[in-house]
């Protein structure tokens, strides 16, 4: 009897220790998050000004603004999504609505999974060999956008597929039973029902494309450019690459670090805002469906 009690006691203690450890894990994780955000906001805010946002760099990147980098990131991101969204959506629709279950669908699904796991710098190599060299687009917005587009493609496909899958089977049945063709059913019933989920996936990939650096290193980005890009064949400045360049190149580290803080703040704010919107949308949409 005595042993039993002491046993119970020790298992209760074990439980306490275990739970404390788990709580500690999440606290440390969140502290890292808070630390990164605090560091960048506290040092970056003083750099941000209207001039910083709207003017071009001056004095060898040690003064002035970063407007060309903001614009460059915008171009690259829009280009990437414009390329990947139609392709990804079509792929998801095929896999979920048309594809005969079996070998072909499995092969495509496997290649999507593997594409998602390819390191971003390898996408950069691919972009360099194919878009920059083989197609002769050079180091340009076009090459960078296409490379980033391929990078975000798997994410768009899986988010879209998940959203399509969440649209209940019964509404497809209802539409077909009313004499709609398969394409009418997809266009008028399935896609509208899946749209919030698809949008979430797209928004998250926008955040991803905006923040990626390695794929544009050799396909699009340049440290210094006089003024703004004038065509899709121009090389561009981009926020993430600009941070890297400011931290590793140039001659005035102190002044450059301050500007890098400003860029980091912009980039962080953009990606956090975009992800927050996406997460909010998704949660709202999920609870709508659970109804």
């Amino acid at each position: 009897m005595k042993i039993r009690i002491s046993n119970k006691f020790s298992s209760a203690v074990k439980e306490k220790i275990g739970f404390t450890f788990l709580a500690l894990c999440i606290v440390i994780t969140l502290l890292f998050l808070a630390g990164i955000i605090y560091l960048i906001f506290s040092n970056g805010l003083e750099v941000i000004s209207w001039e910083f946002l709207t003017s071009v760099p001056r004095k060898g990147m040690t003064a002035g603004g970063v407007a060309p980098a903001i614009v460059g990131t915008l171009y690259l991101t829009v280009g990437a999504v414009a390329f990947a969204l139609p392709l990804g959506l079509a792929c998801a629709i095929y896999l979920n609505e048309y594809g005969p279950r079996g070998f072909i669908v499995n092969i495509i699904r496997m290649s999507i999974n593997n594409l998602a796991g390819v390191p971003s710098v390898v996408f950069g190599l691919f972009g360099l060999a194919v878009f920059v060299k083989f197609f002769g687009f050079g180091v340009s917005i076009l090459s960078g956008s296409l490379t980033l587009g391929i990078l975000i493609l798997p994410g768009i496909i899986s988010a879209s597929q998940e959203a399509l899958m969440a649209a209940p089977y019964s509404i497809r049945e209802a539409s077909l039973a009313l004499g709609a063709t398969q394409w009418q059913t997809i266009k008028k019933t399935v896609l509208p029902a899946a749209m919030p989920g698809i949008m979430t996936g797209v928004i998250l990939s926008v955040a991803r494309a905006a923040g990626e650096t390695a794929p544009i290193l050799f396909t699009a980005a340049t440290f210094y450019k006089r003024g703004y890009p004038d065509s899709i064949f121009s090389e561009v400045m981009a926020l993430p690459y600009h941070i890297y360049a400011l931290m590793t190149e140039g001659t005035k580290p102190d002044k450059q670090t301050a500007i890098a803080y400003g860029c980091a703040l912009l980039l962080l704010a953009i990606t956090l805002l975009i992800s927050a919107v996406a997460i909010y949308l998704r949660n709202k949409y999920r609870s709508l469906y659970a109804r």
Binding site: F32, L204, E212, M247
Partner: peptide, 26 residues
């Protein structure tokens, strides 16, 4: 849960260049 899960996801959405920057400076 409603707070923690989005927070962890937020951590995932921070671009790697920011992590590099944080690592270099802090």
């Amino acid at each position: 849960k409603q707070i923690l899960k989005p927070l962890i996801e937020t951590l995932a959405s921070i671009p790697s260049i920011i992590y590099g920057f944080f690592g270099m400076l802090i």
